[in-house]
């Protein structure tokens, strides 16, 4: 199989979906010139009518996506950095999440929200925050985040075809990660709501996503021979594949949740609570979380103080297996 980068995989998903369906378009700021390369060159094939730049007016920009989706189109709204979605967060979360349900479940809202997220660029809080947990808090919105080029292409295609609002950020720390992807024209999709066991193991389960999945796999390899670590990529946060996690815990009885989000009220807390509610008897040790401490993400070299990393993940694994 050929190898391409994570960010190129997203671009291939856009290209194939836009060729397949004329109602798909991308709206954002400076997506034509491609501030991030997932939209690079698209304007040459699809024109400025489908690769749409707006003024710096996030509500209006998201309004293009929201209103066009109501009109039956399938927009992808690119916020550039995840934190920028908070500029119009009331629309993205409240108005979007309630739209279909509150109005009698009679009118779907098929749109995609994406943005680069995560630590690693030393850009500080508003350019480094994760958004999946905050969006996952609001009902009516699907939330997913790919971790490999294969998943990125397949999940973005699924998100664009989905009849619901889908928030699918991508982590800047794995932008250039290379991985195997089927040949062009092989129209595969990765369904939303299905977790993936990225490495099998028997002593402890680590749930991790995106950059942190790469860290977890590094640690699992390092510990091989000493501890057998099963690494699960949730891929989707809403809906979340609880069955895959519980099945894994039947084998390992131990869980570390790595989540590049704040400790308080984050997705890791939700998973931890659900495991206690639905799988308490499976546990031989308390669920352990590796998250960001509850401080705004500092920039510069202090980012290293707060971001989850292989050392913290290894320490958590050892603690839960002790």
């Amino acid at each position: 199989m050929r190898e391409i980068t994570f960010i190129d995989a997203i671009r291939e998903a856009y290209e194939e979906e836009m060729r397949r369906d004329n109602s798909v378009f991308i709206v954002g700021q400076d997506v034509r010139g491609a501030i991030f390369p997932h939209t690079k060159g698209l304007v040459e094939e699809f024109g400025p009518e489908r690769i749409v730049d707006t003024p710096i007016a996030e509500s209006g920009m998201y309004g293009v996506a929201f209103g066009a989706a109501q009109e039956g189109m399938r927009p992808v709204c690119d916020f550039m950095f995840g934190g920028f979605s908070y500029v119009t967060f009331s629309e993205c979360s409240v108005t979007t999440g309630q739209y279909h349900f509150l109005h009698g479940s009679q009118h779907p809202l098929p749109l995609v929200i994406t943005a680069g997220v995560g630590t690693g660029q030393r850009l500080a809080n508003d350019h480094a925050m994760s958004i999946h947990g905050t969006f996952a808090h609001h009902p009516g919105i699907k939330v997913a985040m790919p971790s490999t080029p294969y998943d990125a292409k397949g999940m973005f295609k699924s998100a664009i075809r989905d009849n619901n609002p889908v928030v699918i950020p991508w982590h800047m720390g794995i932008m250039m990660l290379k991985g195997e992807v089927p040949e062009l024209g092989d129209d595969y999709v990765v369904p939303l709501g299905v977790a993936d066991i990225k490495r099998e193991g028997s002593d402890v389960t680590v749930l991790a996503n995106s950059l942190q999945l790469q860290h977890a796999l590094t640690v699992a390899e390092k510990l091989a021979g000493e501890l057998s670590v099963e690494v699960i990529d949730p891929r989707s946060f809403v809906p979340f594949d609880m069955d895959t996690l519980l099945t894994s815990l039947e084998k390992t009885n131990r869980l570390v949740v790595v989540d590049e989000d704040w400790e308080s009220g984050g997705f890791a807390a939700t998973v931890s609570a659900r495991v206690m509610e639905q799988g308490f008897d499976l546990l031989d040790a308390p669920v352990t979380r590796v998250t960001l401490p509850n401080m705004p993400v500092p920039g510069g070299y202090m980012e290293e103080y707060v971001a989850p990393n292989p050392e913290r993940i290894e320490a958590a694994i050892r603690a839960v297996c002790a």
Partner: peptide, 8 residues
Amino acid sequence: APVVGWGF
């Protein structure tokens, strides 16, 4: 905001 999308 949605009005812009309808017009679009």
